[in-house]
Structure formats: C-alpha cells, structure tokens
C-alpha cells in the first residue's frame, strides 16, 4: 500500500530531476510548511472557539468587545512578515531558474501544433515529434513557440511550465540530472484534443544522445520489400506527402509531423496510443474515429493500400 502511494509521486513536481525543478521543489516545501502552520492555527481556533463559547443559556449577553488594536496589528504584521520572506525567496528562485537569455543560442526549438509537438535540433537537420530526446548533464536552452493557438510546455519533473504563443518566442532553461523518460503534457487548453497532447522527454547519456542524433540525421533507406515499396509510392504520390515529410524522399509537407524515423517512436498521436502496426492501421483507416478533431482528414483508402502504408511507416526506424 505504502509502496503504491509512493508511486503517486513519481513524475510529480516533488520528483525533481533537474536543478531547476529542485529549486522550485524546496520553495514549494517551504511554502507547504508555512501554510500548514497557518492552516492548523485557523482550524484549531475554528474548532476550539465554537466549542468553548457555545451558548449555555440564552438570557445573558456576553461581554461586548468591539476590537483590539494590538491584536489587529499582530493580525496584519505576522502575515506581512511571511509574505515578505516568500517574496524574496521567490525572487531568488526565479533568477536561478529562469535567468535572462542574453545572447545564448537555443539548443532546440519546440513548436506546439494542434495536437502534437515538433522539435527542431539546432546545428543538425533532425526534426522529431512528440518524443523529444535530450542529453543529460548539459544546461539546455529551449525555444518555445506555436503555429496555431496557445499551447504550454510542461514536464513536472524538469521544472516549471512555459506558454507557447503564436508570434512570440519563449525560452526555458533545463538541465536534466539523470537518464530516463519524463512524462509531460500540454497545459494550456488548446481545443478538442488538448487531452492527447502529451510529452515524452527521453533523457539520454551524452554518448547515447549523440548516437540517436546521428541515426536521425540519416535519410530514409531505400526499401527492398515489395509491400513497403508500394507503401512508399502511395505515400509520396497520394496526399500524405502534402502534409508530411520523409527526408530523402519527395515527401516534403510541413503541416504534420516529420515521419522520417516514425518507426523508432514508442507512442503515436502525441502519447495517445502505442506505436504498433495495429494502431497505425486503425488510425489510417479513419483518423477522425481514433482522434476526433485531429487535422488529418479521412482518406478512403482500400485495405491493401492501408496495409502497404502501415508496412512502410512501421519500418521507418
């Protein structure tokens, strides 16, 4: 039971995995102590006073006290002191967590779309979607923006959230302590599928990360399987390529996620489903049934075409 409850805090704001999140965590815990003390005081008084001073007989009137200046000064003074303490604690935490960007160049740009994430890595042509690989131990500057409505980047274990606003670039610093998978989600209501706009940050050791980056720079390999080749032809010459890119082929659409290494992702549709051929088949059959509102229209493909497309996309590792 206790072990189960411990699981509740995994991936929460208390499971800090970056110095930024750690700073916020200690401030939060400080606040919890102070407010619990305040809460306890009010709760005890709100129970004690009514019990102690309940009406015993209705004839006599109690002493008519209209106020007490000394108590009033105390009532204002104590909260005021607390407020000042927390203001300065907040101030120092803010400048530690989110110092001005200065002339620093962002390590990657993350763009919010209805309803998926796009990550473009600086100094490389890698474009990832939804599963965002980051190296541990390095202080990274994320540039955040949006192409449509306001979204919000939030991975609780890595620190605070930041809005992604169309027409504006926002920035966030993050230094990940240890490798692992960090769950997050869009935290600004962004329309129909706001719920399925989840983030997976895959934090890797620098060597693994470099390995991933190199692998993802590579263009798509020419297929040799006939079903896959049929799928590739369909993808390139049917409507898919007008919205999706696959580097190294003619598909260069920019509306939807870049699918060059789609097969290497664990999940699809921004965390909605596991990335399996069955789910992919279901999605391609009728996107509006799987994720209503998503901007991918329903193409009335034959079953063979969908099978070919599934085979093609699944092998894009």
């Amino acid at each position: 039971m206790a072990k189960d409850l411990l699981l509740f805090t995994a991936q929460s704001i208390f499971d800090a995995a970056s110095p930024q999140a750690e700073k916020i965590r200690s401030l939060t815990i400080g606040f919890i102590w102070a407010s619990s003390a305040m809460m306890l005081l009010v709760a005890l008084l709100a129970i004690y006073i009514p019990i102690k001073y309940r009406a015993k007989n209705s004839i006599s009137e109690p002493k008519q006290i209209t106020g007490n200046r000394r108590l009033e000064i105390l009532m204002v003074g104590v909260p005021m002191v607390l407020v000042i303490v927390f203001f300065f604690w907040s101030l120092t935490t803010m400048s530690a967590v989110l110092p001005a960007r200065g002339t620093a160049i962002p390590d990657l740009t993350i763009t919010g779309h209805q309803w998926w994430w796009e990550a473009r890595y600086s100094k490389s042509k890698v474009i990832a979607a939804n599963e965002i690989h980051l190296p541990v131990g390095r202080r990274l500057l994320l540039q955040l923006n949006s192409t449509d409505v306001i979204h919000d980047w939030w991975v609780p274990a890595l620190g605070g959230k930041m809005d992604m606003i169309p027409g504006i670039n926002n920035y966030l610093w993050v230094t990940i302590n240890k490798p692992g998978i960090y769950e997050g989600a869009c935290s600004e209501f962004c329309g129909q599928q706001h719920a399925w706009m989840r983030i997976r940050v895959v934090a890797q050791l620098p060597t693994d990360y470099q390995h991933w980056l190199d692998a993802n720079q590579a263009d798509e390999k020419q297929p040799n399987d006939s079903l896959v080749t049929a799928g590739q032809a369909l993808f390139t010459y049917a409507s898919c390529s007008s919205c999706h890119s696959i580097n190294g082929t003619g598909a260069a659409g920019l509306q939807g996620p870049n699918l060059t290494h789609f097969g290497s992702r664990k999940t699809m549709l921004a965390g909605m489903l596991d990335n399996t051929p069955e789910n992919l088949y279901r999605w391609l059959t009728d996107p509006q049934k799987v994720k209503p509102g998503a901007h991918m229209p329903r193409f009335i493909f034959g079953q063979d075409s969908i099978r070919a497309l599934t085979a093609y996309l699944a092998q894009l590792k």
């Binding site: 999140a21 606040f31 407010s35 009010v42 709100a46 604690w89 967590v97 605070g160 930041m162 209501f189």
Partner: peptide, 28 residues
C-alpha cells in the same frame, strides 16, 4: 464556521500562485 476552514484552504493555495516559481509548476 465551515467557511473559515474551507476558505483558508482556498486562500492559502491562492497565495501559492503569487509565488511565481510555484505558479510555474501548478498553474493550469
């Protein structure tokens, strides 16, 4: 009397939004 307790809970959680870094974690 119940209000005194409930509103204090709401008031204190409200103060946590005035502390910007906590707000960064918990807003929305």
């Amino acid at each position: 009397i119940a209000f005194l307790v409930e509103f204090t809970i709401g008031g204190l959680s409200g103060v946590s939004f005035a502390i910007v870094p906590i707000d960064w974690q918990l807003t929305d």
